[in-house]
Write a protein that binds this DNA or RNA. Sequence first.
DNA 1: GTGTATGCAAATCATTTGCACGGTC
DNA 2: GACCGTGCAAATGATTTGCATACAC
Lengths: 135, 135
Amino acid sequence: MKPTPKQALRETGVRVTRQREALLKVLTEASDHPDAAELHRRARTIDDSLSLATVYRTLSVLEREGVVLRLALENGGARYEVADTPHHDHIIDLDTGEITEFRSEKIEDLQRQIAAELGYEIVHHRMELYCRKRT
Amino acid sequence: MKPTPKQALRETGVRVTRQREALLKVLTEASDHPDAAELHRRARTIDDSLSLATVYRTLSVLEREGVVLRLALENGGARYEVADTPHHDHIIDLDTGEITEFRSEKIEDLQRQIAAELGYEIVHHRMELYCRKRT
DNA sequence: GTGTATGCAAATCATTTGCACGGTC
DNA sequence: GACCGTGCAAATGATTTGCATACAC
């Protein structure tokens, strides 16, 4: 069974510190897709000495270790989520900013097929649908 | 038939200045997807007084008017292209940075269908395949 | 002539980094 | 105890903005 984020950290030989545990806890509990500043705000309630610089440093470690995913939206802001669910893409509600996850095996197949026709192999991809609720 | 970018500008009541013409020319002739700094460099060979600030200001006007498209890649850098071809998405070669355009009606249909199932209407979307040449 | 566009330099904003200190292994 | 991780503040890099001047209409 899948290791907890904390276990995942230990296993990669990265040191488990107070601030990293705080950040992991906040990340794990977040169902929305917070940005670095928001994560900092939340994690501070657990460890008030945590600095924003460390949040960034930790997020990049966690991303490198495959524990979190960075979601770079079109407006330039980066959002984060724990990598504990299978691959999926996102729908962004233009009015509320709410982010919904979805997954389509069919689309993934088509993407691979298109890339292959052009002589490419997909390493990773991003797909975001910027939407508005239907009235 | 489709108006030239310059005509498009006049029609929207935006002033056609020396620097805007220079930028439009460079944009129209570019087959790659240059960023703001690169466009500045190129347009300067036509009008050497052109400032980078104006490049940004003009690009945002052109984007608002639907004349150019801003492509926000995952590394944060923005690239631009003239909106003179039908909608398409991009393949980014991770090794060379080269950008290839592609279009899939099937994928677009599936996207609309998925959004609809969740009660959404797609306003616009982005899809980028980060790839590597097959060996 | 009027009002918009421009250049310049200073201001933002998100993110990164240098450095000396503190804490994990 | 060795070495990695942290806080702080300063550095960065891309983009934006205030202001006085220049130019399109």
